[in-house]
Structure formats: structure tokens, C-alpha cells
Amino acid sequence: MLIYNRTLNIKSFPRNCEVIMRTNTFNLISKAFVLCLLTASAFGQRIDREDSVNNDLRMLVENASRSQQVVWVEDFTGLN
């Protein structure tokens, strides 16, 4: 039984390593792919960026919600 287990472990060890390596490689590749895709998306629209910034600014101004400012007076005086 002990020999069987050892044999099994020895045989499965390289396969486990391979699976882990493949998974890590896949994660790295997928991360790199998504990052490249998104970076390309971010910088590939440089022509529209000015319009986009202007639109964002306009929206910011339009969405800014401000209440009426009270008029405050301090009166330095005397009481007769």
C-alpha cells in the first residue's frame, strides 16, 4: 500500500506541476491580454479625448447641485 502511494505520488507530481504552470501561464496571458485591450482602448481614442473631457466638464457643471447662499450681515452698532 505504501509502495503504491509513493508510486502514485511520484507519477502524479510532474502532472500537477504542469497543471499549475499551465494555469499560471493562462492567468498571466489573460491578464496581459485584458490589460493590453483596455490600454489600447484607453489610448486609442486620443482624438476624441478633448471632446470627452469637455463633455465630462459640462456634465460636471450641469450636475453640480448647489443651494442658495444665505446673505449674512454682522452689524456692529450701539444700543441706546
Binding site: 449674512w72 454682522e74 452689524d75 456692529f76 452698532t77 444700543l79 441706546n80
Partner: peptide
Amino acid sequence: LMTIEWHSPGF
């Protein structure tokens, strides 16, 4: 409009 009066001690 909101106000406060501060009274000069001299008066």
C-alpha cells in the same frame, strides 16, 4: 437674510 448685532461696549 440673516443677521447678528454686536454692541459696542462704549455705547
